[in-house]
Amino acid sequence: MTKEQETELIKRIYTGDSQAENELFSQFDSRIVRKVRFSIGTNNEDWQDVVSEIQMALLNNLREGKFDVERGASLGTYVFGITMNKIRDYFKFMKKQEIMTPIQSEVHDLSVDDDPEIEGQEIRKMLRHLLEKLKIKYKEVLYLRYYEELSVAEISQKINLPPRRVSERINYAVKLLQKECEKEKLFSIFQGILIILI
C-alpha cells in the first residue's frame, strides 16, 4: 500500500466508510493473527479475543482520528504498535491470573491439524500438494533442513554439495513453491468465477 493509498483509506474510515474498514482488515488481519498466535502460543484459544481487541482498538482510534498521517509513521507500523501493546496487556492480565507458565511453553509450537485458522489450513493443503510435486533434489534439501533440522554446512557434508549450492537449492525450492502457490491461487479464483458464471 502506497502512502497516498494509506492516507485515502484513513480518511474514508474517519468519515465512517464501512467498505474502507473491510479493506483495512483484509490488509492487516492475517498479519495481526499471525503475530498474536506466535506470541501467545498457537494452541492458546485466547488468540481470537486478543485479535478482536486489537481490531476494536484500531478501528476506534482511526474513527476518532487519532492516527495522524503527517507524523511520518506508516499505517503498518501503527497497526504493529497497537498489536504489540495488546499482546503485552494480555500477558500482564494473565500474570495477574497466575496462569502464564503453560502458555509460554506453547510459543512457536505449530500444530498443523488443529489449526482453527481456515486460511492457514488452505495454505497448508496447497503447500502439502506442491511439496509432494517437487523434484527429489529439492525434497532432499528441504527434508534435511526442516525435518532433520541440519545446518547448511551439515547438509553440504551429507550430500556432498558446496554450502552455497545448498542454500541456493533451498531458496530456489521456496521460490518454486511461491510461484506455484500464486498459480494455484489464480486457478482457484478462476474456478470460483467459472462456478458463479455456470
Binding site: 495454505i123 497448508r124 502439502r128 511439496l131 528441504l142 527434508y143 525435518y147
Partner: peptide
C-alpha cells in the same frame, strides 16, 4: 510461506517426502 512450509515439513515430512 516459509513458516508454514517449515512447520508442515516438521509435522508431516516423513509422509510428504
Amino acid at each position: 510461506l516459509k513458516e508454514e512450509m517449515a512447520a508442515l515439513i516438521k509435522a508431516e515430512g516423513k509422509t510428504i517426502f
